[in-house]
């Protein structure tokens, strides 16, 4: 088996390289979170015809650093009647769940922290740990808003997990692999071979393209729900629940929630990129293709999806709970089943 990790090739497999492989994505997440916070501030400002932060550094690009320092300095409050242990544990559980998914994300053809064969399944399963963290935080706060936020979060997660699973499953049907690295390498040779356009194949794949595009959109919508982003942010809807499951949190622990949300946004974007948008492949065949350019393309595509999420957040209003359930169960679910059956048929005929 060819190596999927340049660090193993360079330095062999020992404790230090393992630590390096584990911490590389963490370094990335730290930098990415700062960029994403700045993007969120700036894009929201531009959408609302404001300037956004302008005073911290040139064009305010140091604003996220200031925000982080502010959060670190804040007083750490633990509610009196809360369940102390669970209350303090919850932010870490949430971040663990978000970060654990980075283990199988293929950043480049030469770097994936753990190239396991059940990668997609793993990403999907590990997401439930974050959900447990949300419930834990919401319940332990001993606050009715937190608890309601947690319950909404679970019901939303259960509902939207299924369309997302169908989208992922369709790609598994097309590739007969759950290894994210293999799925990426199958889509090489230009954007026409990406799974959003039906994957590699002759002209016979034309009729399946609407279904794969549909599934991409379904997965994107479901991923918005899984990361609790607008229009699916009812677990933390400010106008109804103060701040939802993290109402009681402050300072560093709130920063962990914040951080985990941004990490989760990147995870779903990375999955979408890997399974539908060609992963680390260049969109133009051999143009700028290679392990190092792979990192560039992968991060570029993922950031584009993150940008879309931010854009949508500042454009759309929030769903009501019943509308949310309606969309999840009566619109997305049947549509994803139709797409799944069509794609399975395509895979059988090919």
């Amino acid at each position: 088996m060819e190596s999927t990790n340049f660090l193993w090739d360079l330095f062999g497999r020992n404790v230090w390289t393992v630590l390096a492989v584990i911490s590389l994505p963490l370094l990335f997440v730290l930098v990415y979170a700062l960029i994403a916070i700045l993007a969120e501030l700036k894009i929201s400002a531009w959408i609302q015809e404001r300037l956004g932060p302008m005073r911290t550094g040139p064009w305010g690009i140091l604003q996220p650093v200031a925000e982080v320092i502010k959060l670190l300095q804040k007083e750490d409050i633990t509610p009196d009647q809360s369940s102390k242990l669970l209350y303090n544990l919850a932010p870490f559980i949430i971040f663990t769940g978000a970060y654990a998914a980075f283990a199988v994300i293929p950043f480049s053809s030469a770097f994936v922290p753990a190239g396991i064969d059940v990668g997609l399944f793993y990403v999907f399963a590990i997401g439930s740990i974050s959900a447990m963290g949300i419930v834990m935080g919401g319940w332990a706060s001993n606050n009715k808003y937190s608890l309601m936020g947690a319950m909404r979060s679970i019901s939303q997660l259960i509902s939207y997990e299924i369309p997302a699973a169908m989208a992922i499953l369709s790609v598994v049907v097309l590739t007969s692999s759950m290894n994210m690295q293999e799925i990426s390498s199958m889509q090489s040779g230009g954007f026409w071979n990406w799974f959003i356009f039906g994957g590699p194949g002759g002209w016979s794949k034309l009729w399946v393209i609407p279904f794969t595009i549909g599934l991409t959109i379904i997965y994107f919508i479901a991923s918005l729900a899984e990361t609790n982003r607008v229009p699916f942010d009812i677990p933390e809807g400010e106008s109804e629940l103060v701040a939802g499951f993290h109402t009681e949190y402050s300072g560093m622990k709130f920063a962990m929630f914040f951080f985990a949300e941004y990490a989760n946004m990147f995870v779903v974007s990375a999955i979408l990129t890997t399974i539908f948008l060609g992963g680390w492949n260049s969109p133009f065949g051999d143009f700028l293709q290679g392990p190092w350019w792979g990192v560039f393309w992968f991060i570029l595509k993922s950031f584009f999806i993150v940008l879309l999420q931010i854009w949508i957040r500042w454009t759309l209003p929030r769903f009501r709970v019943d509308q949310l359930m309606h969309v999840g169960w009566k619109v997305l679910l049947p549509l994803s089943f139709v797409c799944f059956v069509a794609i399975s048929l395509f895979a059988m005929l090919n």
């Binding site: 399963a125 997401g127 419930v135 997660l157 259960i158």
Partner: peptide, 13 residues
């Protein structure tokens, strides 16, 4: 992974 998926993601929730 099935254990995590079914027991943590399903039954425990």
């Amino acid at each position: 992974i099935t254990q995590i998926m079914i027991y943590i993601g399903g039954i425990l929730v």
